[in-house]
Amino acid sequence: MTGRFSRSSPDIVHEDFDGDLVILNLQTGEYFGLNLAAATLWNEIMAGRDPTLAAGDAGTRFVGRLQELGLVIASDDPPETTAPLSLDAVPVVDVYSDLSDLILADPIHDVDEAAGWPKRPDEG
């Protein structure tokens, strides 16, 4: 699994926060969090470079994970030239399943009368 990769669709959007990334798949409502190492490889992909050449096995595993999550697809175009990367951590992609397409974000009851103010109604 080498070569050039690209976002699987224009509906894969991301934002950078001090090096960490949050990705949203607008089609599915799924959110993903990338640590600094993963964000570095993501940016390599977005620049048209081959992460498997830049980061070896870590890059290969990362691309496999992104494909599994439906975030990138292989491209027919040749990759841009790349230099080896030194990652200071294992690239991690978190799947924020609890954020995926909240059905209603304002449920009943912020307050529990007996337990204090304010209090979640489902607390014991």
Partner: peptide, 16 residues
């Protein structure tokens, strides 16, 4: 962190 703040701010509005 800014990332935490974003994850609290964005999803419900993006959904609704």
């Amino acid at each position: 962190t800014r990332k935490e703040a974003f994850l609290a701010l964005a999803p419900s509005g993006v959904t609704q």
